[in-house]
Structure formats: C-alpha cells, structure tokens
Amino acid sequence: MTKKGILFIFLLACMITLPMAMNAQCKQFAKNTCKAGLDPYQHDGNYHAALLIEGEEAELYKTFYSDREYRIGVCGANNLEKVEFKVVDTRNGKVLYDNSLNDYDWKWDFNLESSQQLKIMVKVPVPEANVDEPEEGCVAIMFGSRDD
C-alpha cells in the first residue's frame, strides 16, 4: 500500500473513531457522575447527554407525575465552570426553580400535587475571563424518582 493510501485510511479511521470515543466518554461521565448522584432516587433508564460548548443552551421537555418524588440532576464536566438550569411550566413559562439562586446546585428534589409537563432549560454560561476560547464538555440531564 502506498503512503497516501495509509494516510487516507488513517484519516478515515480518525474521523470515525473520534466522535465515538467522545460520546462514549460522555456516557461514562453521565453514568459515573450524574446517575450515581441520583441515589436514593431510582434512575428511570433514560439517557440525555450531549457535548455542549460554553454559551450553548439546551431544553428538555418531560411530564412529571403526581404522587411521585423526583430528583432532576443536571451535571457538567469539570472543565465547564458551572451549568445553569431552570425548571419552567410549559403552559405559561413561569419559572418554578432556578439553580443560580441556589449556588448552582446540580440537583433539585421535588414532588407534585398534580401531573405537569415541565421544561428544563440548561445553559453553559461563558465565563467573563475566557470569552475567546470557549470550553466544551459533556452535560447530562438525568431523572430519578420514587414513590411519594
């Protein structure tokens, strides 16, 4: 095989394996850091995680049911300074929880008197001191629940 051929195969392998390796690391992060922190709530088995860059936002829509206790966990990789999240009533946009008012706590425990569809708004803020070189890291949104 020619050197050009070897180089082509090498580049192709890199293009295929690099995103897979990064996604696999994101899953391990979600499992080891976020899922483990849901205890004593039972993780529901759903997986919501993505590589986000500082400045990027995400939204998640989910129905939560009455007579259950929930823990929402929003976890960011260590290289992201902090991750903001708000929980909002999808019907009117009313903010029900804002972790920036709670020292950017990664989790929120709650229960509901009646079942509701809620939206979780996540933002990786851009640090003032580092606007030119945004960091990228895994952010996972996970849920645990237990009987009320």
């Binding site: 529901d44 986000l52 829509y61």
Partner: peptide
C-alpha cells in the same frame, strides 16, 4: 452558538 439550542424530548421509559 449563543443562539443555538439542543432540544431533548423525554418520554416515560419502560
């Protein structure tokens, strides 16, 4: 990026 948003829809798992 500042205006980009990832959207997730979460259904009840089995």
């Amino acid at each position: 990026l500042n205006t980009a948003k990832r959207i997730f829809y979460s259904l009840p798992s089995p």
